[in-house]
Design a protein around this nucleic acid. Structure first.
Lengths: 224, 224
DNA sequence: TGTACATCAGTGAACGCGCGTTCACTGATGTAC
DNA sequence: TGTACATCAGTGAACGCGCGTTCACTGATGTAC
């Protein structure tokens, strides 16, 4: 299991007089993460469970968060930041390579298999929960899309192969990879290779489709 | 709000001596559906809530289902059957038309906007819940993929435009539409037109990409 | 048709449990002088 | 440096609540004769 640092400085340590702080927001976030797994989702965690795991009294929770929903949102922010860092690194590492797509997909699956709880949260909990929670998840997905879009445009320019609506391509890829990734969490590891192949193929099809549409649009404009 | 018939004959009405049956499995399923909405998911429903809504005593629940999980799975079966019927009809209606893709996407969104609770269930609850529940959702998605695959092959044959890995194409389209659809549930209706456009474009890109890859593979084989 | 009986769908009451939240508190830490 | 004081992070106990589940029951329905 990957050790998640949870060093988000979420509490904005203002140095005011008279304080102790033996327990921090991060401690609670870390405790919540420890409780998560294939069979425990954020929405099923109780306040008392988290404080029990963190080793503090239930009411101490309120010193850090208004309620569990606020903790859940903080968890999503954390997860998004963590994942973008990882996949971003993988993408730039592979950028010199020919196979950016496969490299990124592999990095993604690897992270999934390392049992990254943060990734689990982001992948599977986007559709259930409070509005604030759902918005937090959507925000992270949008960040992802934007980074991917920039990469796509860059690569397209380098390859001299224009893309049709790169923003849409980025969105489609992101949502698809996340959707398939979410189901992958419950599958045995033996299926990973096949899943990577399928995901890679899907992403390539989307990009090829975008190029085809772009080429088609260009030629039809020329025809006019 | 669409009136959902819930006439699944789920209880297998065996005519044994001495029975009454003033309440049925379907009554409980209907009650559960009534409670669902944008802010209530199946996993957050309690047994007592459902029986309250159905107007029976809490313990009567056990005459129909072992527990809430069994009810949730029954709900998924119902939802899958309902949605496949609707989209299947839309697809065949549009099959004569040129725009199968757009027609299907529109039918899908229309159903979503009719506040079809069954659709909500299927779209958004696939990743949280018991194993049995998740498997039920996955089963329905797989049915969907298979029907779509058959349609794709049929259309490709008619158009004389071969597809690369139609099964993968069907899977990508299904998962993508469901993922985007799930987020659409929370958006205001004004965004629908834009969403339909995006979804249609995405699906077309996937299909175009599949054709492009197929064409490329064919030409490279010919080159050999 | 009428009567005695068996079945079992649905009930009312009760259980123990974990929950979120509140309250007044305590005692270590940091500050002022 | 030493002392008195203010702050406030964390606490222990208690609350009322809705939950899932159990139990022995009741009374309408269908069956046998």
């Amino acid at each position: 299991m990957t050790q998640n640092p949870v060093s988000t400085d979420a509490g904005s340590d203002h140095t005011t007089p008279g304080r102790r702080a033996t327990i921090s927001r991060d401690d609670l976030l870390a405790a919540a993460l420890r409780l998560l797994g294939p069979h425990r989702s954020v929405s099923s965690l109780s306040l008392r469970e988290v404080t029990r795991e963190a080793g503090i009294a239930p009411n101490s929770f309120y010193r850090q968060f208004r309620d569990m929903d606020e903790l859940a949102v903080a968890l999503i922010d954390l997860a998004g930041r963590s994942l973008r860092k990882i996949v971003g690194a993988a993408r730039h590492r592979a950028a010199t390579d020919r196979s950016v797509v496969r490299g990124s997909v592999e990095a993604f699956m690897q992270q999934l298999r390392d049992d990254d709880k943060l990734l689990h949260v982001l992948l599977r909990e986007g559709t259930v929960g409070s509005d604030a929670f759902k918005q937090a998840v959507d925000r992270e997905l949008t960040f992802f899309e934007e980074e991917l879009r920039i990469d796509l445009v860059r690569i397209a320019a380098a390859d001299k192969a224009a893309l049709h609506e790169p923003a849409l391509v980025a969105r489609a890829i992101t949502r698809l990879v996340f959707a398939i990734g979410a189901t992958a969490m419950d599958l045995p590891t033996e299926r990973d290779a096949e899943l990577i192949r399928q995901l890679t193929e899907m992403v390539r099809m989307i990009i090829a489709g975008s190029r085809a549409v772009a080429a088609e649009a260009r030629s039809s404009t020329r025809d006019k």
